[in-house]
Simulated scan of single mutants.
Amino acid sequence: MVTSRYDNITVDAHASAEQTFRAFVAVPDRSPAPAVVLFQEVFGVNDNMRQLAVRLADNGFHAVVPDMFWRLKPGFERRDETGLAEGMELATRLDYELAVQDMTATLAHVRADPGCSPRAGAVGFCLGGTLAYLFATSARVDGRGPDAVVSYYGSAVHDHLALASDIECPMLFHFGDDDPYISRAQIAAVEAAVANRPDIAVHRYAAGHAFSNFDAPSFYDADAADLAWGRTLAFLDDTLT
């Protein structure tokens, strides 16, 4: 399977409002294909996120990466650790309720796209790991949420565990045991919140934060990244195809 095209698209923010936001899309050479929405780290929709989208398309998924900072700084992107402070400042101002609206709009967009099959999932990293979790708990289109979600080191998931019972789909969580931003106790709290769900798995790695980001050398851990990505692809194949 190879990518047939990639481009930028616009997504309607609200059915009744004249607002749109941008998203990057990578489309496989088969149609219709299951959709996977990718949620960004604090660095925005950058080369790392675009390359991940292309990787997903090469594995047969219709990948869409919405600009989740569009209400704050449209088009924001930074490559690596040098943009961390600016990205984290934007993340602290992100309104999660509005973010859920935008994620729901993205879900509605892919569900209406004839190039997408009826099944849709999501993968998110760092800030996007938290957004992916909220996507699972809260994004609903005509009463239906996503079909599968993967959260990588979601730094605020533990603050929203009261919503765990609202997850209606299989999930994977990936965490680094040496993450300076997410304590082992906070990871344990996530594990406890989903312990009664056989369709949800929490994986820990001997790695730090953002271990999957191959554009941020001080964070990247190739062994952990490869293991987590393999698990992610297998999970998406099992749940979406």
Rank of each mutant, 00 (worst) to 15 (best):
V2D: 14
V2M: 10
S4F: 00
R5V: 03
Y6D: 15
V11K: 00
D12V: 04
D12C: 07
H14S: 10
S16G: 14
A17P: 01
Q19K: 14
T20W: 00
F24C: 02
V25K: 05
P28Y: 06
P28L: 05
P28E: 04
D29V: 00
S31T: 14
V36C: 05
V37F: 09
F39S: 06
E41F: 11
F43N: 09
G44L: 09
V45P: 00
N46Q: 12
D47E: 13
D47H: 11
D47S: 15
N48I: 11
R50M: 03
Q51P: 04
V54G: 01
R55S: 12
L56R: 07
A57V: 02
N59S: 14
N59I: 05
F61H: 07
F61I: 09
V64P: 03
V65S: 01
V65T: 11
V65W: 01
D67I: 10
W70Q: 05
R71I: 13
E77V: 10
E77T: 15
R78Q: 08
R79K: 13
L84T: 15
L84W: 08
E86K: 07
G87R: 06
E89I: 08
L90N: 12
L94C: 04
Y96T: 12
E97C: 05
L98K: 10
D102K: 06
T104D: 05
A105Y: 04
R111S: 11
R111N: 12
D113S: 13
C116W: 01
R119M: 11
A122W: 03
G124A: 12
A132I: 06
F135W: 08
F135M: 15
T137G: 08
S138Y: 06
D142A: 13
P146D: 00
V149M: 06
Y153L: 03
S155Q: 06
A156C: 08
D159W: 02
S165Q: 13
D177R: 15
D179R: 02
S183F: 02
S183G: 12
Q186A: 13
A188T: 04
V190M: 05
A193W: 01
A195D: 15
D199G: 06
I200D: 02
A201L: 14
A201G: 11
V202T: 10
H203E: 12
H203Q: 09
R204H: 03
A206T: 13
A207N: 08
A207T: 06
H209P: 00
H209Q: 06
F211I: 03
N213D: 13
N213L: 00
D215V: 10
D215P: 02
P217C: 05
F219M: 10
D221Y: 06
A222C: 07
D223S: 15
D223K: 15
A225V: 07
A225Y: 00
A225R: 02
D226N: 14
A228D: 03
G230Q: 14
L233E: 02
A234M: 12
F235K: 02
F235S: 02
L236W: 08
D238Y: 10
L240W: 00
